[in-house]
């Protein structure tokens, strides 16, 4: 399961939209964790064509996004490996290309893309209210979410 080469970890969302900023807040902690010195951490508000250069040079990608399904407990982390998921909010850019079309384009152009793309989706409560803080439910569970995401990252993107 461990990635054979360089790993990029990308967090999606906006820190001005309450829980939408969770990935950026998590990255703030993960990037200083000595276990992940070899991982490239990036933030992006949206994916689409922008993902191609972000992926470039990495054999493994871990993408962290938020979801609001209402069917899971706040803070619950889902882990899927591409292509076992449906279309997403941030991994596509409706100003240019969807996630799948971006990958198809990269392959068509002969651009080396990560062999494995792991997507972590954290169930959140509020991504529509403007505000820099997070909802009480997510704030309360932040440390647990950080621990879960860190464990997954170590498992999939850790050193061989």
């Amino acid at each position: 399961m461990t990635c054979p080469g360089k790993t990029v970890f990308i967090g999606f969302g906006s820190t001005a939209l309450k829980d939408d900023g969770l990935p950026a807040h998590l990255i703030g902690h993960l990037a200083t964790d000595p276990r992940f010195n070899h991982v490239t951490f990036l933030t992006s508000p949206v994916g689409g064509l922008e993902l191609i250069p972000l992926f470039s040079g990495h054999s493994c990608a871990v993408l962290l996004d938020t979801v609001k399904t209402g069917k899971a407990a706040p803070g619950e982390v889902s882990h899927v490996i591409y292509p076992d998921f449906n279309e997403t909010l941030h991994l596509s850019s409706q100003h240019d290309a969807s996630f799948e079309q971006t990958l198809a384009l990269g392959k068509k152009l002969g651009i080396p893309l990560p062999e494995k793309i792991h997507i972590l989706a954290v169930e959140i409560v509020d991504n529509l209210t403007l505000g820099e803080g997070m909802s009480p439910a997510i704030t309360e569970r932040f440390d647990a979410i950080l621990s879960l995401v860190g464990d997954v990252l170590q498992a999939v993107g850790g050193r061989r």
Binding site: L49, I52, P53, D96, A97, Q101, A104, L105, K108, L109, G110, I111
Partner: peptide, 19 residues
Amino acid sequence: RNIVGLIAKVGVATGTEVI
């Protein structure tokens, strides 16, 4: 009818330049 279809028509070199 998307950017992948577009590149199929205009060529990989153009797609590479777009990116």
